[in-house]
Design a protein around this nucleic acid. Structure first.
Length: 662
RNA sequence: GCCUGGGUAGCUCAGUCGGUAGAGCAGCGCAUUCGUAAUGCGCAGGUCAGGAGUUCGAAUCUCCUCCCAGGCUCCA
């Protein structure tokens, strides 16, 4: 018997008998590893444990705790899901079932137009647990395309995938089928699935999963094709990991801005108004005002001019801009007036700002010209797309358009990115990466050369910021590419925030120009940018980031003063009045309820500071401070000292650590 | 827009076989005067999302509309 030598990731080598596979290697290294092994990475390629190794191969054993291991076990769990569904609904068609973040899904079409209901999930889970208990091996087999077509002749979606590989029409099909070899995995004669693999050795390696929900999903993501039933599940390497994930989901739910918005009395969506149309209550209105005021002052300092534009306009404006051509579906239908004009609610502000630019002849000496507006826009989002404050039909953008020369463009973009990141940091967001969105295929105006220049300039600026840069191929707007700032929040979710778009097109469509030093007309470059995106959406993200515990400077109610007995109420009012002189948002809860009850109410309202005043405080002109998040109250602090502390905290915008307090 | 599931008091929810609508919290009133997360008693609160139908009788069964949730698609 001849021997082979394989290399491990740490550079060491192992000698094995010829014909050995990765499982044999794992066993050779240790029994514990053999027990844990799920799959292998051979020369960088993920494979089953059972594939024979060759001399010189570099082999890593994939174990459950790793990202790759979780991906393999999630994918394998998806197969078990499909097998379970076929047991319960013989004749069901199964489409695709990949691993995704935190879990997996599988798409089905049930016989006779049947649909899954939520109640079916527990039945399916039970069937899956039986399959796991049966300890079925995942066996790989390889076929030609013709054989594959015959094998899956009763499964139209599989046939389409295999045929797609043959014609080369769908690049994504290669995720399912590699090259011209059709590979399958069968657990038992009962179930066989088209799949590249790899899979865990047997179903008993699975089991820490939970089916989450049923959803509709279009075949191949195309809304013109049949809608399938998708089952989502989550799967983990251990019971603890599964539990931790479910707890994390509960935490996220507690932070949901829609829930906190109601509990904290910030805003609501009266059904009388229609979907995606919010009203802000006094506390939410205060938060909004503070955010807007801060943004305004930063923009003043940043050299922006403030402009205003109306909410409706004749169709002509959006015909010129091209928006009607591209986005008529996303706009509220027009109002037809007596004089034959159609008026539209504005879905964006840019064309108005161009008209301001064009209102008189412009000189190069005025550039860069930066116009800012809190512009309220209306977009007819599809009814299924609206979501709390993050996707609404009426919203206010912190929108600005910068007109500059081609020479100024790179510097202006670079300064802008610095400005954006500083502002976001002031609101307590710190963890960013950038995304560069390039020309959308088949949905863009302008020449190749212009797009190349715009994309290259943005890429330079993005790289100059020193942040991680991710490419979003084809994600740009129809008039130009964009950089977006992505922020990670306190529980690790990412949100697309600010966008900076470069635009060579609109100035041309509107024939905007300035007179340069050469006494000739030149076309300005236009930069579109919004830092919050919309005030509504940014507020939602901050509420979730802080779990409602807004930093003191943003809190609608910053301080509540409580007298211990009602004969302390006068002093409580006195303290409140002193704070109010400093601009503090403060209220007094008079003593007609037990102290504990009033403290509790203020705590539930997430008020940063609760001041309790009693006999000692009246005598010594002090307060007792019960700060949000503190373990113990602090007694006997002088009123002046508290005022000083609060002034400092608000001035520095402090307390980003509150994001993690619960 | 599409698929699935929902809508009962301001909020969270119960409501059996189709037989006159229930609780807790919140609100209001009165009493209570208290040193750091729930004082007691009382009162009020409902077109059971809206409309139509079946029925002697509908929160409950059927249909339509509106709104919400989770996905898909879309997102200037």
């Amino acid at each position: 018997m001849s021997l082979i030598e394989v290399q491990l990731p740490d550079g060491s080598t192992r000698t094995l008998e010829e014909g050995s596979n990765a499982f044999d290697l794992a066993a050779n290294i240790g029994s514990r590893l053999a027990k844990d092994a799920l799959a292998a990475r051979v020369n960088g390629e993920l494979t089953d444990l059972t594939r024979p190794l060759h001399s010189g191969d570099v082999v890593a054993i994939v174990t459950p705790g790793s990202d790759l291991g979780r991906e393999v076990l999630r994918h394998s769990t998806a197969h078990v899901l499909a097998q379970a569904v076929l047991r319960l609904w013989p004749g069901a068609h199964y489409a695709i079932g990949p691993a995704i973040r935190d879990g997996f899904y599988y798409d089905f079409e049930l016989p006779h137009g049947a649909h899954f209901s939520d109640d079916d999930l527990s039945r399916i889970e039970d069937a899956m647990r039986s399959i796991v208990a049966e300890d079925q091996p995942f066996l790989r087999a390889e076929y030609s395309i013709e054989e594959g077509l015959e094998l899956f002749k009763d499964q139209p979606f599989k046939v389409e995938i295999i045929a797609g590989v043959r014609s080369g029409a769908n690049p994504e099909d290669h995720n399912e089928v590699g090259g011209s070899v059709v590979s399958t995995y069968s657990n038992t004669p009962e179930f066989q699935d088209l799949c590249r693999g790899p899979h865990v050795p047997s179903t008993k390696r699975l089991g820490h999963f939970k089916l989450m929900r049923v959803a509709g999903a279009y075949w191949r993501g195309d809304e013109k094709r049949p809608q399938l039933q998708r089952i989502y599940g989550t799967a983990w390497e251990s019971k603890d990991a599964l539990t931790a994930h479910l707890v994390q989901l509960e935490e996220a739910e507690k932070r949901d801005h829609r829930r906190l918005g109601m509990e904290m009395d910030l805003f609501s969506f009266p059904s009388e108004l229609g979907p995606g149309l919010a009203v802000f209550h006094p506390k939410g209105g205060t938060m909004r005002r503070v955010m807007e005021e801060y943004s305004r002052s930063r923009h003043v300092a940043g050299g922006y001019e403030f402009v205003n534009s109306p909410h409706i306009t004749k169709a002509e404006l959006f015909e010129t801009s091209g928006h009607l051509e591209w986005f008529a579906d996303g706009m509220y239908p027009p109002m037809d007036l007596d004089d034959g004009q159609k008026y539209y609610l504005k879905p964006m502000n840019c064309p108005f700002h161009i008209l301001i630019f064009k209102a008189r002849q412009r000189s190069y000496r005025e550039l860069p010209l930066r116009m800012f507006e809190f512009g309220t826009v209306y977009r007819y989002e599809k009814s299924g797309a609206v979501h709390g404050l993050t996707r609404v039909r009426g919203m206010t953008q912190d929108d600005a358009h910068i007109f500059c020369t081609r020479d100024q463009m790179a510097q202006e973009l670079s300064d802008l990115l610095t400005f954006v990141l500083a502002l976001l940091r002031d609101f307590g967001l710190n963890d960013f990466y950038l995304e560069l969105s390039t020309r959308p295929a088949g949905k863009a105006v302008g020449s190749d050369e212009e797009w190349r220049e715009a994309e290259a300039t943005l890429a330079d600026v993005a790289r100059g910021a020193g942040l991680e840069l991710v490419l979003d191929e084809g994600g740009g707007a129809f008039y130009g590419p964009k950089i977006s700032v992505q922020a990670r929040d306190a529980i690790g979710r990412t949100h697309q925030l600010s966008t900076i778009q470069l635009d060579f097109q609109l100035p041309q469509r509107f024939d905007a120009s300035y007179i340069a030093a050469d006494n000739a007309r030149h076309r300005p470059i236009m930069i579109h940018r919004a830092l919050f995106g919309s005030v509504e959406r940014f507020m939602a993200i901050l509420i979730e980031h802080y779990a409602g515990n807004m930093p003191t400077w943003m809190s609608p109610e910053q301080v509540v003063v409580l007298g211990v007995r009602d004969d302390h109420d006068d002093y409580a009012h006195e303290v409140a009045a002193a704070l109010r002189l400093d601009g503090v948002r403060v209220s007094v809860e008079v003593a007609n309820e037990p102290l504990g009850a009033r403290i509790r109410r203020a705590k539930m309202g997430k008020v940063p500071y609760i001041l309790v005043v009693g006999d000692d405080d009246v005598a010594a002109r002090t307060v007792g401070i019960n700060a949000r998040g503190a373990n113990d109250p602090e007694r006997g602090v002088s009123v002046d000292e508290f005022r000083e502390r609060l002034r400092n905290e608000v001035a520095s915008h402090g307390s980003p650590e509150l994001a993690r307090a619960t």
